[in-house]
Amino acid sequence: MGGEFLFFIETTISGLMAGVMYALVALGFVLIFKASGIFNFAQGVLALFAGLTLVGLMEKFGLPPWAAIIATVGVMIVLAWLIERLVLQYLVNQDPIILFMSTIGLAYVLEGLGDIMWGSDVKVLEIGIPQGAVDWLLDDYGLYIEKLEIVAAVTGAIMVTGLAVFFNKTRIGRALRAVADDHQAALSVGISLRTIWVIVWSVSGIVALVAGVMWGSKSGVQFSLSLIALKALPVLILGGFTSIPGAIVGGLIIGVGEKWAEIYIGSLVGGAIENWFAYVLALGFLLFRPQGLFGERIIERV
């Protein structure tokens, strides 16, 4: 194999892995948007908050990783309940933009709280995820692939399968789909909207925790973690706001496209195009399919 081709494969694989990471964040968005029509800008900060809490519990209270993770899941569920109780309950039936802005307010609160509680310095997250390159690939084929990225990909796959089973096979999952379909019809058959919202926010809190752990292990738990939400947005419009497979496929397309662009186009125009290329890519797709690749067809009536 030529070095050029090898490099291409390496780029593609690392793009796919990055795509899985984006997809993890985008998943949280999709869950909440499906169930409540809220465009949850706080998803990135949720990931940061979860990461901070996890590190904080491990450092300050000396909990072993598994206990800290369970405790953090608990914290995320309590948080979801609080969000529903203190914020969303009062904003039912408001314009989408008001709900959107309230989640930005929420992002500020969580960011500030996380910093106050656990401090704002960069933290190292070490919960036993293997680091470094995969040895046999490096030795036999000269491919450099991070172990962490493989773990992330596998975790992502497990999460998606788990969510699919949860949505399709359980009672709560059915209720969630009913709510996503039609709020009023769901209410009329006795599904409690508020319980559903708490569940959805908890689930996306847990998804955020997974995303936070993965990104945190990769580059440390710090403020910039909350900015991955901005990376997940193009994924979201590409895949469609309401589609879980869309989030995955969109994530992969954006991840690979971004890496290719950075290497093959970026060098021509001065580099650092990662920040906006994803958006332009997504925009290009949108011009042909305004609802995203897998989004529900938007039917409008006067």
Partner: peptide, 13 residues
């Protein structure tokens, strides 16, 4: 930052 967030949510509500 926290208070700004709280105030924004408060006014929106």
């Amino acid at each position: 930052i926290t208070l700004m967030g709280v105030l924004i949510i408060f006014f929106l509500i």
